[in-house]
């Protein structure tokens, strides 16, 4: 049992019916993916390759057209306290302070009522936001807002963290700092992480393994392991692997 993957994705396909054109759009086709407990898996691919769709299925926000997803051995049918999501646009509630936004991560779980204040303080400390408990999101920089989003995702102690381009909306300099910070925080908590990005550097720097997606239809092209020795070689290899897709996406050839 202990060696079973914490996330098992089998034959996952997601198709949309596009009302305007009457066509069916295949967002994701035949994805198989295993994520081991404690692993940091980065998912790399060009825009529109369906990686966010896969993440939303694992989160329980989206029902797959076909295929199954197991999280901790149980089929995913809805969001659950074992999985938390960090969003690219932070998705903080603007009318709540940092502390109250973090509280939102556990207030729908009655079992965590006791000791909630301690959990919130600890999560805020962990992400380095101590002193900003009473700030509103718009008073914070993008990087700090994402720290708050991260604290919210950690406060209820989920087993799995799903991160959808969490550094995609922060400026380049902050992104460098935040990558190292993320690594530190995740290592400290020992969470299993699925981390979506379209940055090769980010995928290589953070991931234990990298799942490379290609588009049309969105599917996994290859899965590579990151070892301390192969980082530089990997960058070139990944770029070659992604180049044609990336160029196509940039040209809008997809449509």
């Amino acid at each position: 049992m202990a060696t079973d993957p914490i996330i098992q994705i089998r034959d996952l396909s997601v198709r949309y019916h596009v009302a305007r054109t009457g066509n069916r759009l295949i967002a994701v086709q035949d994805v198989d993916l295993d994520v081991m407990e404690g692993e940091f898996l980065t998912v790399l691919g060009p825009s529109g390759c369906g990686k966010t769709t896969v993440l939303n299925c694992v989160a329980g926000l989206l029902t797959p057209t076909t295929g199954t997803i197991l999280a901790g051995g149980r089929p995913v049918t809805a969001p659950g306290p074992d999985r938390a999501v960090v969003f690219q646009d932070y998705a903080l509630l603007p009318w709540r302070t940092v502390a109250d936004n973090v509280r939102f991560g556990l207030e729908m779980q009655p079992r965590l009522k006791e000791g909630a204040a301690d959990r919130i303080a600890e999560a805020i400390r962990l992400v380095g936001l101590s002193g900003f408990e009473n700030s509103y999101p718009r008073e914070l920089s993008g990087g700090m807002q994402q720290r708050a989003g991260l604290a919210r995702s950690l406060v209820a102690d989920p087993r799995i963290l799903l991160m959808d381009e969490p550094l995609g909306a922060v400026d380049a300099l902050t992104r460098e700092v935040m990558r190292a910070e993320l690594k530190r925080i995740i290592d400290a908590t020992g969470k299993t992480v699925v981390f979506i990005t379209h940055s090769i550097d980010e995928a290589v720097q953070l991931g234990d393994r990298i799942a490379v997606f290609s588009s049309h239809p969105g599917t996994i092209k290859e899965i590579v392991s990151v070892t301390p020795g192969n980082r530089d070689g990997l960058r070139d290899q990944l770029w070659k692997s992604l180049e044609s897709d990336a160029v196509a996406a940039a040209r809008g050839a997809a449509e």
């Binding site: 926000l61 969001p79 999501v85």
Partner: peptide, 29 residues
């Protein structure tokens, strides 16, 4: 209401009524 906020609420365990009371109503205020 920003759909992203509704998604976040669902992720953290809010049902329909909680989404309405904790997110939509506030966002619409």
């Amino acid at each position: 209401v920003d759909p992203s906020l509704v998604r976040a609420a669902r992720v953290y365990g809010a049902g329909r009524i909680q989404v309405f009371l904790k997110v939509q109503l506030w966002a619409a205020l």
